[in-house]
Amino acid sequence: MKLAQRDAVLLEETMGLAEIRGRSLWADARGRFIRNKAAVAGLVVLVLVALFAFFGQVLAQYEPQHVDFSLMGANAWRGVPSLETGHYFGVDSDGRDLFARTVQGTRISLLVGIVGALVAVVVGTLYGAVAGYVGGRTDQVMMRTVDILMSIPFMFVLILMLVIFGRSIFMLFLGIGLISWLDMSRIARGQTLSIKNKEFVEAAVATGVRPFTIILRHVVPNLAGIVIVYSTLLVPQMIIFESFISYLGLGVQEPMTSLGALINQGASQMNNGTLWMMGFPLFFFLITLFAFFFVGDGLRDALDPKDR
C-alpha cells in the first residue's frame, strides 16, 4: 500500500517534469556527422585554417607590406624559412615576409569562398524556392533567366569587368556573387517542386498560411539539407575560381594578396631554387580545399542518410 503510494508520487513527479525534449532531424544529423571521422578531421583542419587566417598576424614578426631591403638579391639563401630571422615561411621574391603574406592571402581566399557561398545560399535558395513554389509562368520566366545568365561565359565577362572597372576586391566579390547562385537556384527549385506536393504544404495552404510564409516556414527548412551540402562544396569551387583569376594576375590588387596570387608569384620563381615561395601557399590552398570537401561529404552523408 505504502509502496503503491510512493509509486503514485513518483509518477506524478515524472509527469510534472519539464517537457520532454525531442530529437530533431538536425540533432540526428549532428550525431551522424560526429561519428564520421574524416569529416570531423576536415572540420578541425578548417577551424585551424580559419584561426590561422584571422589571428595568424599576431604571430608574424613583420607586416605583410614590409619589404626587407637587406635581403634584396639574396632571397635564395638568406630569405629561407627559419625561426631565427622571424621569416617562418621565408620571404617572397620582393623580400616581404611570406608568413604574413600567407595569413593575408588565406583570409582573402576564405572570404571570397564564404561570400560566394553565402550569396548562393541566400539568393539562390530563395530564388529557386519562389520559382518552384509559385510555378507556372513565373517559374518559366525565372528559370529561363537563369538559363540565359548561365549561357554567358562568366569567366570572360568577369575578366572584362576587372579590366574595365579596375581590379578591386569589390569587383571580385560582385563577379563571384553574380554566378554562384545560378546552380543553387536550379537545385533549390528542383527540390521545391517535390516538397510543394507534400501533404504538409497542402495542409499549410488549407490552413490559410500566406504563400511567402509557407516558402520560409515549410519549403526552405526542408531544402536546408541539400543547400548546406551544396554550399560547402561551393566554397572550394569559389576559392579555386578566385585563385584562377588571381593566377591570371587579374584578381586582388597589391598590396593585398590571395592564395592564388601567392602561388602565381611562387611559381614564377620556381627556377631560382626558392620552392618555399610556392610550397607554403600551395599547402594552405590544398588543405583548405580538402577539408571543405571532406566536411561537405560528411554533411551529405549526415543530412540525407537515405541517399548514401
Binding site: 530533431s24 501533404e199 490559410g208
Partner: peptide
C-alpha cells in the same frame, strides 16, 4: 484565407502531413 479558419482538413498520410522540421 479567413474562410480556411472555419474549414479544416485531416489528411490521408499522417506522417507526410506534418512538416518533419517542425
Amino acid at each position: 484565407r479567413r474562410h480556411r479558419k472555419d474549414v479544416q482538413m485531416v489528411f490521408q498520410d499522417p506522417l507526410a502531413a506534418l512538416n518533419p522540421r517542425m
